[in-house]
Simulated scan of single mutants.
Amino acid sequence: MARILIVDDSPSQLVSMKRIVEKLGHEAITAEDGASGVEVAKAQRPDLILMDVVMPNLNGFQATRAISKDPETGHIPIILVTTKDQETDKVWGMRQGAKAYITKPFTDAQLTEAINGALGG
């Protein structure tokens, strides 16, 4: 069982992703914006992070960069899960340290495949 941090400012998206994560048998922890996502990542050391991009305080690109550049959290794979569907957004997200990029709305199967791939399953 992995511990997966879900960072999203939308309560409905948090519930949706948490349901999928728990259905896969993993533990879900949550944060409601990029800044708290970075704090939770440092404190909890999750095995994987699902990160929204469009959020208040610190956006997902900034939070991903902060987590991936920090020696304490840089090993944690990050999947960006966002409504930003332009190729330039995807390229930029990957440059910030993301391992995968999923656009919303996503299917359970898409998120499951990304989680399993990031966890090496």
Rank of each mutant, 00 (worst) to 15 (best):
E113T: 12
Y101L: 11
K42S: 11
S36C: 05
T73I: 12
I115W: 01
G37F: 04
I76C: 01
D33C: 10
I102Y: 06
N59F: 04
Q44I: 06
D89I: 08
P56G: 14
N57M: 05
P105D: 06
G34D: 07
R45Q: 15
F61V: 04
V54N: 11
E39L: 06
P71G: 10
Q44W: 04
G97H: 01
G37H: 10
A63G: 07
T82P: 06
K99N: 09
T112I: 06
T82Y: 02
M51Y: 11
E39S: 13
P105E: 09
G97F: 02
L58G: 04
D52I: 12
P77K: 01
N59M: 04
Q86D: 14
L111S: 02
T73C: 07
K90Q: 15
T112F: 00
Q96K: 11
T64L: 04
M51H: 13
Q44V: 07
T30H: 09
K42N: 12
V91P: 04
P56E: 12
S36M: 12
H75E: 10
T83H: 05
V40T: 13
N59S: 09
A114R: 02
T73E: 06
V40L: 03
I78N: 05
G60C: 11
T73L: 08
D33V: 04
A100H: 09
I115E: 01
Y101R: 09
V40D: 00
Y101I: 07
P46N: 12
K84Y: 09
A100N: 13
D52Y: 10
P46A: 11
T103E: 08
S36A: 10
V91L: 05
D89S: 12
V54E: 14
T64N: 05
L48M: 07
V91A: 08
V91G: 01
W92N: 08
A31D: 09
A31Q: 03
T112H: 00
A43R: 15
D70H: 11
I79G: 04
G37C: 09
A43Y: 01
K90M: 14
R65L: 12
K69D: 14
G93K: 00
A118P: 02
P77W: 01
K99P: 03
D47M: 03
P56A: 13
T64M: 00
Q110L: 00
H75F: 06
M51D: 12
L111R: 03
P56V: 10
K69N: 13
T107G: 10
T82N: 07
L111Y: 03
V54H: 06
L80H: 12
G117N: 15
P56D: 09
A43W: 04
P77L: 05
T88H: 10
A114I: 02
E72L: 14
L58M: 15
V40A: 09
Q96A: 06
K84E: 15
F106I: 08
